[in-house]
């Protein structure tokens, strides 16, 4: 069952991928002093799939993310396909719902005006945008906070506002870059379960970056591990834990087996980064 560990991608699924990365590279700097941030990444995400990506810090996760968001162009070696269509440089801008690590709320906007920002940019009327946002407030646990300002909210609430903003930008592919990284452990585990509920209801395709192995296994249909820099996909493992997942799933033998395997791989890569740093 765990033979998937050996192959860099999971080819078992024959539906057309929602997002596909083929031989994606990113190099920075002039040829003689080049740093390779991302090398030879192949990755396919099926429609409605929740894929988590882990890797040692500085492995090029964010570069990869920015390429999928369309913020930076990949090198010419490979290509990014969205719903089987090859994307031009920066062509992905406006096609992917992207949520960076920091909540990046605008301090001069109220909670509801922060949430409707992407709709405003799309040209949705203020009234229609507000109506759509208001419908989401109970689900996001923000009822009664519509006219508050970000500085009046806790970290967990700010993160939910940022997630609501991402969800209101209704794209089928959602990119989340360590959205819970700055939260305390209790808030984080509550936010994880809540995110799964929201995902189960809306069924967007999700690519979720984290450096927390527990989080990656708990959330994902598939966990993808990146190598140390220059980052590439080391392995991918399908997580067949039944859904909906309760917090107690993290103490089952199955969960711990998966964690043991992934931990070994991640540790190996982290050591490379660490060793490289001390040698240099």
């Amino acid at each position: 069952m765990d033979s998937s560990m050996a192959t860099p991608s999971i080819a078992a699924d024959h539906r057309p991928a929602h997002l596909q990365l083929i031989n994606v590279w990113k190099r920075f700097g002039p040829p003689e002093r080049q740093t390779v941030a991302v090398r030879n990444v192949d990755l396919a995400i099926q429609p409605g799939e929740f894929v988590t990506l882990i890797g040692p810090s500085g492995c090029g996760k964010s570069t990869l993310f920015n390429m999928i968001a369309g913020l930076i162009a990949p090198d010419d070696d490979g290509s990014i396909l969205l719903s089987n269509k090859v994307q031009q440089d920066y062509g992905l801008l406006g096609k992917v719902a992207f949520m960076p690590q920091r909540d990046l709320l605008f301090p001069w906007r109220t909670v509801i005006d922060n949430a409707t920002l992407p709709l405003e940019i799309e040209g949705v009327s203020r009234k229609a945008a507000r109506a759509r946002a208001e419908a989401l407030f109970p689900e996001f646990g923000l009822e009664g906070f519509e006219t508050h300002y970000p500085h009046q909210l806790s970290g967990g609430m700010r993160q939910r506002v940022a997630l609501m903003r991402t969800f209101l930008f209704e794209r089928d592919l959602v990119l989340l870059d360590e959205p819970f990284g700055a939260l305390d452990a209790l808030t984080r585990s509550m936010m994880q379960r809540w995110l799964l509920d929201v995902w189960a209801k809306h069924r967007r395709t999700v690519l979720f970056i984290t450096h927390d192995i527990d989080e990656a296994i708990f959330l994902g249909d598939k966990v993808v591990v990146m190598t140390a820099r220059p980052g590439t996909i080391k392995c991918a493992e399908r997580i067949n834990l039944p859904r909906p997942r309760a917090a107690s799933v993290t103490t089952t033998g199955e969960f711990i087996d998966i964690k043991r395997r992934l931990l070994a791989v991640v540790e190996e890569e982290s050591l490379k980064t660490f060793g490289g740093a001390t040698l240099a």
Binding site: G94, F98, P100
Partner: peptide
């Protein structure tokens, strides 16, 4: 204006006019 907020606005498909009115100007006020 915060580069990360600018990136976020670009990912929403903001035009340079929207970028100015909704982000740069309020940041500068």
């Amino acid at each position: 204006a915060d580069p990360q907020r600018m990136a976020l606005m670009r990912s929403f498909g903001a035009s340079s006019r929207q970028m100015f009115l909704k982000l740069s100007l309020p940041t500068a006020l």
